[in-house]
Design a protein around this nucleic acid. Structure first.
Lengths: 216, 216
DNA sequence: ATTCCAAGTAACTTGATGGTTACTTAATAG
DNA sequence: CTATTAAGTAACCATCAAGTTACTTGGAAT
């Protein structure tokens, strides 16, 4: 039961490391090829681990997929909590996050495409996190920083749309913008646009394209 | 060379009909399962056509996929042309279209996920159509119906985002809204929201949540 | 030292799947 | 009427991929 005390820096047998390697290899493979397209052999190879180990630790391909998703999910949730409800901040933050980590967006896309009628992977948890996010928006509305004429749910949906779309549809974005989403120029331009556009969520009276926040 | 003159209402051999059946079956199968997940046998079965015919008409699975995409593409382009550049109209129209025909959105999603670095399917055509769309936005800006402070490309990208997102990520939408996107109540609410929100694209002076269009 | 189990390996099984071969038949052109 | 070709069929095949079997081995507990 006692921990191995780590004889040499790395012992030959190392369950945790193996598990980690499988998970990170699986993340890449699933993000790249989706569930159906992902190859268990490829994951094993990427992880430099015998394929059998994958079944040893995760049972089967689907369990592994769910675990990968669940993991990324909780990682993101932590980020979300640390965020104020300010539209300009949220928009730029999440847009940036989507550009930095397209794998995340891609996983959500694969999830969306995967016959959506059944129950979600980590539903309970995600629902709770969503509700906390909605609550933050309501608070902003109460403080007059977000227009109260919009349903918070619709505000959140609009924000998600604006931030995730480019990473979710890079081909359409390139068609429209003439640049790949990885291009820093695009990212800067888009961030600037989102900052201005965030004014759309502010209450009508205090209206005038962002520029600054008089309530400071 | 002369057309068969259609002896009986339907002759036993009927290339066009067979081609159509394959294409429509392929659309469903590809939209449902993506390229990797789609099963050639399933397409053949759905089309009630011998699998060999599929190779007869389209060469292989990938060619068939490209053809399906190309077809849907041109269908949509026609719609787009018939549209004015008014934000409120565009937003509600495309949102409605995405809800009515989720297969279309799903195909675009599959395309996005399919290792995006290579050249797009119907690129030349799509680029041209995109440019015509941008031109329409510029015209609206010149007429003062769309704020000139936004880059037309960013306006288009924002509109696409707002309209396609719910159909592209039904699971996230349900999480936020508490209803499936197929629910008419959701669709009505969202349409109403988009109508109000369209004001965000209008010039600052003429500002006040849509409601009506004084320039009539 | 010995025992025992989790960690690890190699080779195999089984089923699915894209694509092909070899054939038949409808319908049109001459 | 007949030759030709496109439309259509059934059975097959090679390959690939998920999951398994049967085995070996490191290392902690006794």
């Amino acid at each position: 039961m006692a921990r191995p005390a780590r004889t040499a820096s790395v012992s030959l047998r190392n369950p945790e490391r193996t598990r980690e390697r499988i998970l990170s290899a699986a993340l890449k493979e699933f993000a790249a090829n989706g569930f159906a397209g992902a190859r268990v052999d490829a994951i094993a190879q990427r992880a430099a681990v015998n394929k059998r180990m994958l079944y040893h630790y995760f049972g089967n391909k689907e369990h592994l997929f769910r675990e990968v998703l669940r993991l990324k999910m909780t990682e993101r949730q932590a980020w979300a909590e640390s965020l104020s409800g300010d539209p300009a901040e949220s928009l730029t933050f999440w847009f940036d996050a989507a550009c930095r980590d397209p794998d995340w967006v891609r996983l959500l896309e694969w999830e969306a495409l995967q016959e959506a009628n059944r129950r979600l992977i980590d539903e309970k948890n995600r629902r709770a996190a969503t509700n906390r996010g909605l609550e933050r928006i309501r608070q902003r509305q109460a403080r007059g920083q977000v227009s109260a004429e919009f349903d918070p749910r619709h505000v959140m949906l609009a924000m998600r749309s604006l931030t995730m779309f480019p990473a979710a549809f890079p081909q359409l974005t390139r068609l429209i913008m003439g640049r790949p989403i990885s291009d820093p120029t695009f990212q800067k331009e888009r961030t600037a646009f989102l900052k201005k556009f965030a004014a759309a969520f502010q209450p009508s009276p205090a209206r005038s394209p962002a520029k600054n926040d008089p309530a400071k």
